[in-house]
Amino acid sequence: MPDTTNLYLFIVAALLLLIVPGPNMAIVSSHAVAHGWRAGLAAALGITLADVLMTIMVSAGLGALVMSWAPAFDLLRWAGAGYLMWLAWQALKAPSTDTQSQATQASMRKIFAQSTLNSLLNPKALLFFMVFLPQFVTVGTSSVTSQLMFLGLLLALIALIFHALLGFCAGQLHMRLREGMISKRLGAYSFAAVMTVLAARLLLLNRPL
């Protein structure tokens, strides 16, 4: 386990990073606005699973091994962008039903899986774990691997709490839209727009040096 000073710095840094708008925040918010707070929670749990898997990869040295293969970064970002565009298309071509029916159709298990895969297909997420976690490792106190695992799991837990709260708040907007009888397709259009923007963001990423 890292020393107390490093641990406090890690928690503060993690919180500061989480409040900066990013892809995960957009994923959770868009699902919650489209389908309610349960969908936001499912997305938050999916992102958490991806965080745990990336922590294991970094701790075992697999992350560096993957990124050592030159085309890996480009393959991941193109696959991720393609997947996001597919999600946008699925949202747009869905039948125009009321909001409650949409919530039923978008099963929590499906949203959970989509959010997990979306995070895993973002090469910047893996690079972030590879660069961020080692900064807070305390040399000489315990094994580097165990410290990386501890820090990664702690980050995943903090992110889960933050994203769950975000999903709940965004879910309130879903309720207001439904009660206000605003366009039944607004949630789907908003979700498709977010997915398209995230796909464009991935495509415009430069390869790491």
Rank of each mutant, 00 (worst) to 15 (best):
A32N: 12
A32F: 08
A34I: 01
A34H: 10
G36W: 07
W37S: 13
R38Q: 13
A39D: 08
A39K: 02
G40I: 08
G40A: 09
L41Y: 06
L41S: 11
L41A: 13
A42C: 15
A43H: 05
A43Q: 11
A44K: 04
L45E: 03
L45P: 00
L45V: 13
G46R: 11
I47A: 15
I47E: 06
I47K: 02
I47F: 12
T48P: 05
L49F: 12
A50M: 03
A50V: 04
A50K: 07
A50Q: 05
A50T: 06
A50N: 05
V52A: 13
V52I: 15
L53R: 04
L53S: 07
L53F: 09
M54V: 05
M54C: 09
T55W: 00
I56D: 02
I56W: 10
I56F: 14
M57S: 15
M57D: 02
M57W: 09
V58H: 03
S59K: 03
S59P: 01
S59A: 15
S59H: 00
A60M: 13
L62R: 03
L62I: 15
L62C: 06
G63L: 00
G63P: 04
G63H: 01
A64G: 10
A64R: 06
A64W: 07
L65C: 02
L65P: 00
V66H: 01
W69G: 02
W69Y: 14
A70Q: 14
P71S: 07
P71L: 04
A72F: 09
F73E: 00
D74S: 13
L75W: 09
L75Y: 08
R77T: 04
W78N: 06
W78F: 15
W78Q: 12
